[in-house]
């Protein structure tokens, strides 16, 4: 038995009578909103490593610009003091969903119900990524072994693959989501065109692997050996041998970066032909 520590004495909450109480000056800082209506974005954290959330912050001053002008961050682990999943325009879901963790399943369903656009943010949410290799027995939750991409549990609108996804990509998606929800007709069209392939990726399925380069590019007679897949692979599992990717499948973490970055997985001329204008527009929006 520990000796009972003496409880700290609470100070009396009584104001001495000789204190002059001045009228408190109203200093509640009202946030200035240069833009009429921001969109709301949240980040739901499931079975991920927080790398995706850090990636959001890796936009540095760009994140502040996003939050100043385009989006309010209404829900995010460590960044926002909100306990329960709120209503939001865009929900970025990080991590795969552990079926053995009832709270994860419930929160994911709640996020789906309360958001207009549900994004699988990062490879774990989209494709399972490294959690595809989980077989249980790990500290400190040995009983948790069933991890699935979130689209096994809820409908997903848009994918941002890779491990981690790139700060510039989530920034672009955030700006485009703003244009889609708050922009004029022209901006809505641009945003729709930009986001379409990422939405199609979500329709394509929730399995990714370096093998996609074989199955869906080389086997389809579409590879021309540009080297993008090898350059983009975050774990250097892809090398170029005689003009074709060679995937070391023991290294591949199934993040989907190689295939989604490949110019022959999809190439939308309507967006790409206007690359200069779009890049200038995003740069302008972030200044």
């Amino acid at each position: 038995m520990k000796p009972a520590a003496s409880k700290p004495q609470a100070k009396p909450a009584v104001k001495p009578t000789d204190v002059i109480v001045e009228k408190k000056v109203e200093v509640v800082q009202k946030e200035e909103k240069p833009v009429a209506e921001k969109i709301t974005i949240g980040e739901l954290h499931l079975s991920g490593c927080t790398g995706c959330l850090v990636t959001l912050a890796d936009n540095y001053e760009g994140l502040f610009k996003l939050l100043d002008d385009y989006a309010d961050l209404v829900y995010a682990l460590t960044l926002v003091d909100v306990r329960h999943v709120p209503e939001m325009d865009v929900c970025l879901v990080e991590g795969s969903c552990c079926l053995d963790d009832k709270l994860s399943v419930e929160e994911l369903k709640e996020a789906r119900a309360k958001s207009k656009v549900l994004v699988a943010y990062g490879a774990c949410a989209a494709y399972g990524n490294i959690t595809r290799f989980c077989r249980g027995g790990q500290w400190n939750q040995p009983g948790q072994e069933a991890f699935v991409p979130i689209s096994e549990v809820v409908d997903v609108d848009l994918y941002i693959p890779s491990c981690p996804p790139c700060p510039q990509e989530v920034r672009n998606v955030a700006v485009m989501a703003y244009l889609l929800l708050r922009g004029n007709d022209e901006q809505k069209n641009l945003a729709t065109a930009y986001l379409t392939p990422l939405m199609q990726l979500a329709q394509r399925g929730n399995e990714a692997c370096g093998c996609d380069l074989m199955y869906d590019v080389i086997n389809q007679g579409l590879c021309m050996g540009c080297g993008t897949c090898a350059g983009t692979c975050p774990v250097r599992a892809v090398t170029m041998e005689y003009g074709r990717p060679n995937v070391n499948r023991d290294l591949c973490i199934k993040c989907g970066a190689c295939y989604s970055q490949c110019p022959r997985s999809w190439f939308n001329f309507d967006v790409m032909n206007n690359y200069e204008g779009i890049m200038d527009a995003i740069k302008g929006a972030m200044q």
Binding site: C166, Q168, C226, T228, C258, P263, F267, Y275
Partner: peptide, 25 residues
Amino acid sequence: VGTPCQIQAVRKAQLYPIGMRDVDD
């Protein structure tokens, strides 16, 4: 420097930098 398809890949890497961290600018 690149062939037309490689330049297409460059522009895709800039507009959709999915796995191309800090490359676009």
